[in-house]
Measured scan of single mutants.
Amino acid sequence: DAEFRHDSGYEVHHQKLVFFAEDVGSNKGAIIGLMVGGVVIA
């Protein structure tokens, strides 16, 4: 149960990062950079 909640939280966090990247611009380099930055921060 705890693992499921953790996975759901991660999924929401990931979707927010992707949405933010798409909102800023559909530049693949920027999106990839944001994703990598999110992984480093996390």
Rank of each mutant, 00 (worst) to 15 (best):
H14W: 01
H13S: 10
H6Q: 13
A21E: 09
R5A: 06
G9F: 11
N27L: 08
G33C: 07
I32R: 00
D7P: 14
G9V: 07
V18I: 12
L34T: 09
S26V: 13
D1Q: 13
V24W: 03
S26A: 13
V39H: 04
A21D: 08
H14K: 07
A30H: 04
K28C: 09
H14Y: 07
G33Q: 05
S26H: 08
S8R: 11
N27Q: 03
D23V: 00
G25R: 11
V24K: 13
V40R: 00
N27F: 15
A42S: 09
N27A: 03
H6E: 06
V39F: 05
H14I: 15
A2V: 06
F4G: 13
V39G: 01
D1Y: 10
V18L: 05
F4P: 10
G37W: 01
V18P: 14
Y10T: 13
G38S: 05
D7I: 08
A30D: 01
K16W: 01
V40G: 02
V40Y: 04
H6I: 06
S8V: 05
A42F: 08
D7N: 12
G37P: 01
H6K: 11
A30Q: 03
E22Y: 04
D1F: 10
H13P: 14
I41S: 00
Y10W: 09
E11D: 13
E11V: 11
V12A: 13
V12W: 12
H6L: 06
A2E: 08
G33M: 02
K16L: 02
M35W: 02
F20S: 09
I31H: 06
Q15E: 10
E22T: 15
M35F: 00
G33R: 01
G33N: 13
V36C: 13
K28V: 05
V36F: 14
K16G: 06
H13L: 05
G29C: 15
A42I: 09
H6C: 11
D7R: 12
A21C: 14
S26I: 10
S8N: 08
G9Q: 13
V18C: 09
I32F: 05
R5Q: 06
G29M: 05
I32M: 03
A2L: 05
G33H: 10
G25I: 10
S8A: 10
A42G: 03
K16Y: 05
G33I: 04
V18R: 11
S8D: 09
E22I: 04
N27T: 04
K16Q: 13
Q15L: 08
Y10K: 09
Q15D: 07
A30T: 13
V36I: 14
V39T: 08
L34E: 00
D23M: 02
H6W: 08
L17N: 12
Y10V: 07
L34I: 14
L34P: 01
M35N: 07
E11Q: 15
R5W: 05
F19R: 04
D23F: 01
H6T: 09
G33K: 08
I32A: 02
V12Q: 08
A42M: 12
G33Y: 03
A2Y: 13
L17S: 10
V24S: 12
A2P: 07
I32K: 02
G9W: 12
G33A: 01
M35Y: 00
G37E: 00
E11A: 10
I31Q: 09
F4K: 06
G37T: 00
V24C: 06
H13W: 07
F19M: 13
